[in-house]
Write a protein that binds this DNA or RNA. Structure first.
Length: 519
DNA sequence: ATAGGGTTAG
């Protein structure tokens, strides 16, 4: 551990010296080759002076194209879009705006800062594209939640003479991972990757494992992991995280032990995922051991790790220890406050969770974000505070200027439906800017059954017949609803309809479960 | 002499 501290010190000093002497590019290399937990510290210490260095030396004088490129790269890393556009102006002024390297970097800066329309403007105005500039743009769209657009651009790229490479595939597969509407494209891309012989690239492997695990195809994720021989730490972390999030906590722990014995670098990503697994399994003893490792590695101020610790303790029923970990954290940001609120909500103390939220908001100590609202709305739902939940949802737009995302809409639909206001629930599903998915319709259908609403129940069931053609569940629930209303003829019809559509009533094998597409 | 894109964590 001493070595790590020493190394951090050396790296940071080297980094600072490079900056103060103006060796921008060398500083950059030191930064790039350091482990991530070191770079956080470097960013604090080094990149602020770097911004002024750029302002003084790149913007003021006549910079070379290499300097401009490095400077842009720094802007991308520090998410400094303001400096980025100043450099952009300088690029036009110095006539370097036809340079392929510089334009790719510029696309990257805007995309990293979330300004995809600016990035697209630069991209469209370029005279020619190579695989790097295509990939920068595709990746930018993917990282800004525009998976569909990323896929479209990828298709456009395929129609040119420029061929995608590993990096392109990593970007476009990531795009499929985060948007339900393009889930199905992932497997096709996997086939492309195999044909091109890129299946052993560790970046490609980790993002494919991530993809399969997130769309519910764990068997494929495990198969892919089994067939690769690498001991790359990111690949292992991805697999551990996949196990932890798919009710296979034991497999996650086993892999973690193997990882330690195999001398693979244990990072803060590893700690976070393994703590998730401990929480899911409610194994407090193992969780405490990992906590000891966190302390030993000096990771007890990493936001993600601290959040995972709070989560682990609260899932293991130890809310006091969860609070203690929270109190020990020096920087209390959104993620940590959200973790604490989740901890209370998970421990069946929904009202306390809301109290913390209200208190924080009143003191203006934090600005709640989307994830936080999901937690608050879920807490309301679980504690039966349905009206309160609805009012929190409305506050999202009226007081915090946050446009609700699909997760928060799902909560709102649930709140209305569980209250028995089925009409409002349906109205939200129709009017929200997302397509209602099978999970939403299923929970709506359950509420229809609970409140004996034949008409809306029928509508929801027929929607689900389309969305999940192999599942018998909506048929059975609709039959229940009809039976409850004494409509015995309709119950008979459902039986016929199931036969006609080839849906089997047997639940054996659970082959209809969403995400598992064995037929 | 010097430049550009990628994976895992709430």
């Amino acid at each position: 551990m001493l070595y790590n501290n020493y190394s951090l010190l050396v790296r940071t000093s080297l980094f600072k010296i490079c900056l103060s002497r103006g060796f921008c590019s060398t500083a950059h290399q030191v930064f790039d080759k350091s482990p991530q937990r070191h770079t956080t510290s470097m960013l604090d210490k080094g990149y602020k002076p770097l911004a002024s260095f750029i302002q003084g030396n790149v913007l003021g004088k006549k910079p070379t194209k290499y300097q401009l490129c490095t400077a842009l790269n720094c802007c991308a890393k520090t998410l400094n879009s303001q400096l980025g556009s100043q450099i952009h102006a300088k690029i036009i002024h110095t006539g370097f705006d036809h340079n392929l390297y510089i334009n790719s970097s510029l696309v990257n800066v805007y995309a990293k800062c979330g300004l995809t329309s600016e990035a697209l403007k630069v991209f469209d105005e370029m005279e020619s594209h190579d695989e790097v500039s295509w990939t920068s743009m595709i990746c930018g769209l993917s990282q800004n939640g525009q998976g569909k657009e990323a896929l479209c651009l990828f298709k456009e790229m395929l129609s040119t003479l420029v061929r995608p490479n590993c990096v392109t595939y990593v970007s476009v597969i990531s795009a499929c991972t985060e948007q339900e509407s393009v889930f199905k494209c992932g497997e096709l891309l996997h086939a492309h990757v195999i044909i091109l012989g890129n299946e052993s690239n560790s970046f490609v492997v980790s993002c494919l494992i991530d993809y399969y695990s997130k769309c519910g195809k764990m068997d494929k994720a495990v198969m892919l992991f089994g067939s690769c021989t690498t001991s790359d730490d990111v690949v292992l972390n991805t697999m551990i995280s996949a196990f932890a999030h798919n009710q296979q906590g034991e497999d996650a722990l086993k892999l973690f032990v193997k990882m330690q014995n195999g001398n693979v670098y244990v990072s803060e990503h590893t700690l976070t995922s393994i703590l998730d697994a401990c929480g899911a399994l409610t194994v407090l003893q193992q969780g405490k051991q990992v906590h000891a490792l966190v302390t030993k590695m000096g990771s007890d101020q990493n936001t993600y790790v601290v959040g995972a610790l709070i989560n682990m303790y609260s899932k293991c029923g130890n809310i006091d220890e969860a609070c203690h970990v929270f109190d020990q954290a020096v920087y209390k940001n959104n993620i940590l406050w959200t973790s604490l609120i989740t901890a209370y909500a998970q421990s069946g103390r929904g009202l306390d969770a809301l109290k913390i939220f209200d208190h924080l908001v009143m003191e203006k100590r934090f600005h709640p974000d989307h994830v936080c609202f999901t937690v608050v709305l879920t807490a309301c739902n679980h504690s039966g505070l349905l009206d309160k939940g609805i009012s929190y949802f409305k506050k999202m737009t009226s007081e915090y200027d946050l446009a609700p995302e699909i997760d928060q809409y799902a909560c709102l639909i649930d709140l209305y439906a569980r209250k028995g206001d089925l009409k409002s629930a349906k109205k939200v599903m129709e009017e929200m800017p997302f397509d209602a998915n099978a999970v939403m319709w299923s929970s709506f259908l359950s509420s229809c059954k609970e409140y004996g609403n034949v008409e809306l129940g029928r509508e929801a069931a027929y929607k689900l017949f389309e969305l999940e053609p192999h599942s018998p569940v909506p048929y059975l629930i609709l039959a229940d609803i009809y039976a409850g209303a004494g409509l015995w003829n309709e119950v008979q019809n459902i039986r016929k309809l199931m036969n006609e559509n080839g849906v089997r009533k047997s639940l054996a094998g659970w082959s209809w479960v969403e995400g598992d597409h064995r037929q």
